[in-house]
Nucleic acid binder design. Sequence first.
DNA 1: GAGTTTGAAACT
DNA 2: CAGTTTCAAACTC
Length: 432
Amino acid sequence: MGESEGSEFPPKKQQQQSENAYFQTKKLARQLDFTQGVLPDHTQSQPSPLQKPPLLVSPAAAQSQPQPHPQSQLQLQPQVAEIQVVPQQQTQQQQQPARAVKPESPKSIPIPNTELKDGTPKKQRQCNCKHSRCLKLYCECFASGTYCDGCNCVNCYNNVENEAARREAVEATLERNPNAFRPKIASSPHGTRDSREETGDGLVFVKHNKGCHCKKSGCLKKYCECFQANILCSENCKCMDCKNFEGSEERQALFHGDHGNNMAYIQQAANAAITGAIGSSGYASPPVSRKRKGQELFFGHTVKDQSFDRLGHFQQGSHTRPPAPSSSLPSNPIARAGNAITLGPSKITYRSLLADIIQPQDLKELCSVLVVLSGEAAKTFSDQRNSMEKRVEDQRETLLASSTQERLQSHKESDADKLLLMIVLVQTMLIK
DNA sequence: GAGTTTGAAACT
DNA sequence: CAGTTTCAAACTC
């Protein structure tokens, strides 16, 4: 058994099945054809600016799950949400209604696994697979639906040249798990963008679809998929000794670390908020370069894991251990219910990425900054198109209005996001 | 950079 | 479905 050659592609099992399942898988493959750009008609899907493109779905999955962003039909789930500043252009794009997006070429499939370091967007991440031929989910590229490009992998089949093998691998993978390429982190059925929009409170429901099964990491290391995605563990998780829950001291210790003055950090967080990275199909956090000491960014313990699940019991941290009286509804010391709105079925609520960075008192300052900036912007554009000026003025007015004491007193965490967004927008306009 | 740890994915 | 093995990323030194 020659080691790296060990596994066959397709695996024997699949080969055997392949005849019987041929037509079925063919059908699947059609939808999964990364190279074609022919999209099934999913126009009923709602293009959600808040939702990253999930995956190609099997027919079954397609039926049972909310439809992803059209683009997703070709782009597999991005592992990471883009958090860089999003120029208005992009915003507009996001707002565009469903439209079939056709990849220019296979190479376009790769999702910008934006890796931000100091605010600099980086290229798609590179895998280092040696034994999987990059044809299994072990491979991040494959798992995210992208071709390997510039990776350090060995014997890679995840490329155009080996499209056939790749396709078979995709089929096999889907056979095992029809949702294999679907986002692991996604808004819950109750937490689509609609919810968020409707509430106006920036609520969003995010959790790991399968949940993690961590045993030793306390769910506070990137081994943990939830942690890596910057979300709290949920009732889906079966982890042990979980510390990735709202209120966890260990967890808080992580992000009360050193990102204090890191503008990039703030910007990223702001962008995440802006782009709606949270709840996206992709991870909400930048994949940050590997080798990081200490668990740097915890961009927002973005999600608020509300304590009760539908059955009235809470899991957080409990997936953990001693059979806590789960039925007795352990008073959840954590759920700092500040904004902990009880959301019925969904126990996760959106929480500002900046909630722990920007304090209530900072809001006023932010307002001031924005007022000044918008004022400058207004001047800058005063001799330009009236519409532009008006726009800025509008923003300014909006801001001023929102700066009232009353507003500040009843501020919500999401205000920080909005303020930063406005600042970014105004700055962008000024730069232009 | 090498070695270890970890947990998801794959396999039995 | 549970247990085991394989794998590659995360992490440590």
